[in-house]
Amino acid sequence: MRLRILLTVVMALLATACSNNITLGLPACDRPPTDPTGANVLVAQAVPRAAYAPCINSLKLGWDEVELNVESGRASLEIGREFSRFLEVSLTETCDVSSATPVDSSLEGASRYEDLTIVRQEIPIRLIPTGERPRLHALMLAEQLGGTRLDDRPVEFSVDENIDFEVRTRVNDALFDDQYVWIINDLDVEEGTLEMRMTADGEGLRGLTVGAALDRLEDLVPNVTYKGQWFFVFEGGCITYDFDAEGTVAVTLDQDAAEAIGFYDNAALIEAGRRAGYTLIEE
């Protein structure tokens, strides 16, 4: 009986605690440096010399689990759904960008780098005709098949009209651009078939009808994927976006991440604290 009373009291306290919203929560972008949340302060304490710290503008639909992990030297936001993490945004003092490519940065005083592996939602198919008659046939086919969807993903057809170039070179170019290759020759025009080629040199699948080729493709195309890193390097720190998403969440993840995650002015927070009498960095 006494145990039940105790449990009831504890549960009531926990419920009150939750309703009073005194939990740590997440670092908010909309709080001024003079009135930060506890989470903003804790993240700043992790890497106190960093000019910026990650913060949340607004959570996106489907970002069901957002967890803040903070320790000295590192703060991270882990974002996921159904026990699967698809994005981790971390603040550290340094980061290794040697394998990444520099890109334009919109963040003042920060350099941006990317190292990504992307499988877009659109399934690109390059039709490579081997002569004039096949070229006309390919153009007609691309027109007819416009709007086709595979696994609810749009299929984009394009026709390589450079019929004077060597087929092998054209196939190579298409594969290099992560496109699927359908080769159409005169016999294919006669018989309404095509050849699906996976490699530049190897044998393709000949004599496929369009329907059969699409069926084959359905088994071959990988999931929509957004994997890799964005790096923002600035004075005193680095923010890394670590993406590992497949499927529907990957379709708009880059836009969602850019909108939802912001950059908190950490330097201003530390300075505001110093003016209020709290010294967080050794002078």
């Binding site: 926990l14 605690a17 939750c18 005194i22 939990t23 740590l24 929560g25 506890g38 989470a39 302060v41 804790l42 304490q45 992990n69 903070v70 320790e71 000295s72 030297g73 604290g273 709290y278 010294t279 967080l280 960095i281 050794e282």
Partner: peptide, 23 residues
């Protein structure tokens, strides 16, 4: 861990001289 999560307090507002983790 539960109370750490519920209380959600920052670390002391002084220069911290040792490693730490969480609230």
């Amino acid at each position: 861990e539960l109370v750490q999560e519920l209380v959600g307090r920052p670390r002391p507002l002084v220069v911290i001289l040792a490693d730490w983790e969480g609230t």
